[in-house]
């Protein structure tokens, strides 16, 4: 075990097949501390990669380890690792506090310590007020947050988060991103999956780009452009079935400065001064079910140029 592999998450020629179906193929990665985003469209293999890192799946071929710990040794692994998965389900009948505390105790923490860690985690995600209510009565955003709290409660040094911003409103999204940044500043490894490039750009140090089960690109993000919202509008390409209807909807938002049809009439370029509001609006439109959105990708920053080149234009 080299020193380097004790500080990285290492994939050594890892492949995972679900029977005949390819999950991920021939992945070689060495992920250092900091925030690393896994980016790619639906079915790219992001969740598969995360489940492999946490031993929920076993590789069909290849080897992997997290900080030098093989992924089939949960007792060691999960002292260091926390995973907030994509599964939005819970053990029945527990309150948020009971949920977090119970699994801390399963990990071997004594009652008093588990209590303290639980409270700390609930405070970090701002869920103390609802902690004694049953999770069954939580909203989607609260469920997302209680799962996040559960994954950080034992103070892991590697935190793996599968689409952790899903279902959160823009304010909580911003707060959660700030929490991630803070955790990374505390020296944690964060692996976050997302397909919202604007947010990836805002929070990550590195990106791993996945498509159809292959790692197609990886590397550092050049600069985080916090000022983007004010300085110059962000342009996004939305691939959907009814771009003109979508354009009509988008113009209701004052922040949208331009909406232009793609030449092939199956996409819409939107320029917006406020990406958060834009994504919220887009979510509403999608939720109404009139418009079928295939993909969303920013078109004017480096990452998205890569994204479009490698993934968008398949």
């Amino acid at each position: 075990m080299t020193v380097a592999s004790e500080q990285t998450i290492t994939f050594d020629n890892v492949s995972k097949f679900y029977g005949e179906i390819l999950g991920v193929n021939r992945v070689n990665l060495a992920i250092p501390p900091g925030i690393t985003s896994l980016v790619g469209p639906n079915g790219a293999g992001k969740t598969t990669l995360m489940n492999l890192m946490t031993g929920l799946l076993r590789p069909t071929r290849g080897r992997l380890s997290v900080l030098g710990i093989p992924t089939d040794q949960p007792e060691q692994l999960f002292r260091k690792v926390g995973y907030c998965s994509q599964f939005d389900s819970f053990p029945r009948g527990l309150t948020g506090r009971e949920f977090i505390k119970s699994f801390l105790m399963v990990s071997g923490f004594a009652g008093k310590e588990a209590d303290e860690l639980t409270t700390e985690a609930l405070e970090r995600v701002d869920l103390v007020a609802a902690a004694n209510r049953r999770i069954g009565a939580y909203s989607k955003g609260m469920r997302q947050r209680v799962r996040l709290a559960q994954s950080i409660a034992h103070q892991p040094s590697v935190l793996i988060l599968d689409e952790p911003l899903n279902g959160l409103d823009p304010v909580v999204r911003a707060e959660t991103i700030a929490l991630f940044r803070q955790l990374a500043a505390e020296g944690l490894h964060l692996i976050i999956s997302s397909h919202i490039l604007h947010e990836v750009d805002m929070m990550s140090d590195r990106v791993v780009l996945l498509n159809n089960g292959y790692v197609v690109a990886e590397g550092a993000i050049h600069g985080v452009r916090d000022e983007m919202d004010v300085e110059h509008p962000m342009q996004v390409l939305i691939r959907c079935d009814q771009p003109s209807l979508l354009a009509a909807r988008m113009f209701r938002d004052d922040n949208v400065v331009e909406a232009r049809l793609h030449d092939d009439r199956r996409g819409l370029f939107v320029k917006t001064r406020n990406p958060d509001r834009f994504y919220l609006l887009l979510n509403e439109v999608v939720a109404q079910g009139e418009i079928e959105v295939e993909s969303i990708a920013p078109v004017d920053d480096d990452l998205s140029a890569v994204y479009d080149y490698l993934i968008g234009a398949q």
């Binding site: 946490t54 031993g55 929920l56 949960p74 007792e75 060691q76 692994l77 999960f78 002292r79 926390g82 995973y83 998965s85 599964f87 389900s89 819970f90 053990p91 029945r92 699994f103 399963v106 990990s107 071997g108 559960q150 994954s151 034992h154």
Partner: peptide, 13 residues
């Protein structure tokens, strides 16, 4: 119930 993973993700053999 899709809740087994919480056990599998705890530091327990």
């Amino acid at each position: 119930d899709r809740s087994l993973h919480y056990y599998f993700l705890s530091a327990v053999r």
